[in-house]
Design a binder for these strands. Structure first.
Lengths: 341, 341
DNA sequence: CTGAAAGCGCTTACAG
DNA sequence: CTGAAAGCGCTTACAG
């Protein structure tokens, strides 16, 4: 039972244990140079007093805060939250805490704002989510400020120490393979927005599969979206209103795929018997619309955990992994190609 | 241009400005007792040197960290993220940062974990999201530890200084009124899980409206769910498989409402012509399923901003508000009651 | 209106 | 293997 007195400090522990505070500091910091019984004695006093080291004092002395920052401008709430959970897995039972910081990629002051933030908070390191993780100037800023960083991306954006990546290109290739195996030939794509690495990777995966199968990709079978629901609705509208419409659509994310599903419904085109659709992300919406949507799932939480470990425990086994394969989740939005269109 | 030298400290500023560091401290802390020109001189030097006060040092001296914590166990990602944004609105351009901390309401050590967290991080204050915000022991813990706190809830959970609330009961009452006005008489409810204040508030709102209109609520027209999609699917299944099925369902949240929509589709019951559905939360899914769903929207971001201000700027005008009305968003899942069933 | 001294609770060389 | 001294960069009474 801790009394209502103020919290015990390192001095209290030292006094009660009959050692110097430096020795107490050594046991806190798990220094190897300590006699076993000294350590045990001090640990007993720490437990007895309910002592917990003051992180502000440590931060001041070490010139470094035990804070990890999450920099993000990702519009997918579930992605951001899963990532947070993964980072928290990495820092559970440590003295680290996670600070969140959404950024505005369109603000001209973004970099200055982040610089100010890093200067002020003296973060131990930052985790950077896509799409802002693709910004090389931001990574350079972190390096310049002596702030650790790990970038997450659909492809490897930095060396293994500073990046975790999924394999968007390969997984999209296999998703399109799957469509081809189901008999589809006229396959359209709703692309992600220009300037997004993920959009590019997924596009290339799509094209790789199509070429591999000797399938034609007329220009008007690729329509660009913004990753938002409405853009998927509009893009699929274009696709479905053409004379010869596609029998399958690969959408670069689930939101747009959900929009495509609406577009089909508005035209009395039945998914999947008339039109197959595959999304990407495995967002909650993918499982909760009708029909439940086949999509690509990537292990965000595991990636986040590894990213966190790279920062706080770089020698840990879990900190070594840098590539995390995504995989196709088959649900009910894909069917064999209709015989006649 | 800041050089690559280490950051300037309060001593550098004092030396260059030719004043004591106490005076510098005064301008940082906006003390009123300062001659105008002294202040200006110091501010000029601060700007010139690019000085930014070290928060760790301040934290140590003030025995208080400039960190706000977000304690949550809310399963709705968008809700959590919107709340984060709102808190960040409140602390933008201050030295505060936001630390996130999901908690596990089912863990027997939850309170001890939080105690340890608060002790360790010495947070300035915490924001508590539902459902864990309903835990009075947690609030007591914060008080005991001298940590500021604000609880968010579907009803007022604490005094105005420590709570922001929506008006779930009233808004659900009006949502059900709306159903009645559309001619519905057999209205069912999918209730939220026992022990959730929001579930209770929404249930009471439902009953209030039904009683007000003299409508019967047979016991089997109230089915309990868990706020999750699957439970909505199952609950609506029960409701729709009865001899005399409801013509409208009010679901305590959108996820379950989406499940109800699936249940209807599986039975070839068309929404809204055969069955009207209203959800709650205005989650992204509500707008993105088919038909777009009528639901209740609550101003999470504004609530979060006010909650943040209560902690960091209690005298600010925005910190006074404690009640935030939610409102019905009419989309396409409600239609007049079918003439015959 | 401004300053000199002590203190917040740790860690870092440096000794021994 | 352990300790005494100085320092991290601020703020807090207390003077003046």
């Amino acid at each position: 039972m801790s009394s209502t007195n103020k919290n015990p400090t390192i001095n209290d522990v030292a006094r009660v244990a009959g050692v110097s505070k430096k020795t107490v500091s050594r046991v806190i910091n798990r220094s190897a140079l300590l006699k076993q019984d000294t350590r045990e004695k001090v640990e007993a006093v720490i437990a007895e007093l309910g002592y917990v080291p003051n992180p502000q004092a440590r931060a001041l002395a070490l010139r470094r805060n035990f804070l990890l920052g999450l920099l993000h401008d990702n519009p997918n709430a579930q992605t951001v939250l899963n990532f947070q959970e993964g980072v928290l897995d990495a820092i559970r039972d440590t003295e680290f805490a996670l600070v969140v910081r959404p950024v505005d990629r369109h603000s001209p002051e973004m970099l200055d704002d982040i610089r100010h933030f890093l200067e002020q908070q003296r973060l131990y390191g930052v985790l950077i989510l896509p799409p802002i993780s693709e910004n090389d100037e931001l990574a350079a800023l972190c390096r310049e400020m002596g702030c650790g960083y790990v970038r997450m991306g659909s492809a490897q954006l930095d060396d293994d120490e500073h990046a975790v990546a999924s394999n968007d290109r390969e997984v999209v290739e296999s998703a399109v393979d799957y469509l081809v195996e189901a008999g589809h030939r006229r396959i359209a794509m709703i692309k992600g927005p220009t300037g997004f690495r993920s959009a590019l990777e997924r596009y290339e995966g799509f094209m790789t599969s199509m070429k591999k199968h000797g399938l034609d990709v007329p220009e008007d079978m690729i329509v660009q979206g913004s990753y938002r629901f409405d853009s998927g609705l509009a893009a699929a509208g274009e696709l479905l209103d053409r004379g010869e419409r596609p029998t399958a659509i690969f959408s670069s994310n689930d939101e747009m795929a959900a929009g495509a599903l609406h577009a089909a419904r508005q035209r009395n085109i039945t998914v999947p018997s008339d039109l197959s659709i595959i999304g990407f992300d495995d967002s909650p919406i993918a499982a909760h619309i009708w029909p439940p949507m086949t999509t690509v799932s990537w292990p965000i939480r595991e990636m986040a955990r590894a990213a966190g470990l790279k920062l706080v425990a770089p020698t840990d086994e879990g900190a070594q992994a840098a590539r995390f394969p995504a995989k196709l989740v088959q649900r009910q939005s894909v069917a064999p190609a209709p015989k006649k269109i």
